[in-house]
Amino acid sequence: MYIYKCEVKSGPMLEIKYYKSLRKRNKKNIARNFNQAKTNEKQALANRIRGEQHTQRLILCNFTKGDWFARFSAPKGEFTEEQFEKIVNNFFKRIKRRAEKIGVQFKYIGYCECGKLGKNWHLHIVIEDCIREIATECWQWKNGINFTPLYQDGNFADLAKYIRKDVCGKKRLRTSRNLTKPEVTVVEGKKREFKKLEKGEALPVPDGYYFYKDDMWVNDFTGASYHFVFMQLTATRRLTNNEPKTNQRNE
């Protein structure tokens, strides 16, 4: 059994994960002794969690408080999915051309969705504040535009869940290719550190961060894994004498 420590840096969020693996990382030509496939329910849950985490990291890497979650709808039109996708593609091309003229990039994360009755196709996307005016000018249905400001309360976790919900149903996830990706570092973990976590000991909070939350889950084959989330300290938040330097995990 191999132990690994994974650090994921996504904008102001730092995740540290400790986990065990039956196979050595990046080692090639190792045959598997048996199929360790999860049940459909567990695999679906794992895929959903990974999808939400990936989307949250992308939002944190590319957007911040003051940017927007926008809805662009076609309130007076009835379209097939293919027709609306063509409308959205042309909409994105117009935004990109205008953004390039003023020297800014057009980044987005979102989805296309249709109403419950099969009408009112609309697009939800996260965009930067510098794109708001351009996008408003480029959308042909002026009464079908709505903007909601982004707040980092919850580190965009709820927004990521909302964006990923039912992506295999009527939602069609869309992301631009120019998004900044999170920084991922994986190294071999120390057995002593892992044993401390198994005993319930706290993980030291990295300098410049404060503890946000932690999770523990159990794999049917490799046992317990540990996931810690820290957020960067800002000018409006500093550690006080009442805030511990390490997180306290509840068993």
Rank of each mutant, 00 (worst) to 15 (best):
F79L: 05
A235Y: 09
M231R: 14
R237C: 08
E137N: 11
N143I: 05
V229D: 02
K142C: 04
N47Q: 15
W141K: 01
E81M: 06
A44V: 06
V104W: 01
S21W: 08
A99Y: 08
V218K: 13
H54R: 15
F106L: 09
R132T: 04
V218S: 13
E78V: 10
K93D: 15
G208E: 07
I127D: 00
R50W: 08
N241T: 11
Q232C: 06
A135H: 00
G169V: 10
E82P: 09
I87C: 08
S73P: 13
M216E: 06
T136R: 14
S21P: 14
A31V: 14
D207C: 07
H54Y: 15
A74R: 02
E183A: 15
A70V: 05
N242S: 12
F194V: 10
Q56T: 05
H124C: 02
V187D: 11
A46Q: 08
R23A: 13
K28L: 12
D166L: 05
K245L: 15
G208M: 02
I163F: 08
D158L: 12
K181I: 11
S73E: 08
V218H: 15
C112P: 03
N62A: 00
S10V: 01
R177T: 08
E113R: 02
N155K: 11
T185W: 01
A99Q: 05
K107R: 15
K213Q: 12
G51T: 05
N90A: 07
A160N: 03
D153I: 13
E15D: 12
P182C: 09
I102Y: 01
W141P: 03
R32E: 13
N146M: 15
Y151Q: 12
P182M: 11
R249L: 00
Y212V: 11
L203S: 06
N250C: 11
R71C: 12
D166E: 12
F63H: 02
E81H: 08
K27M: 11
K196D: 13
D158V: 12
L150T: 04
Y19Q: 01
Y108P: 02
E198L: 14
I145N: 04
L233G: 03
L45P: 04
V104P: 08
P206Q: 01
T222Q: 04
F221S: 07
H54L: 14
M13R: 04
R177E: 10
Q53G: 12
L179R: 04
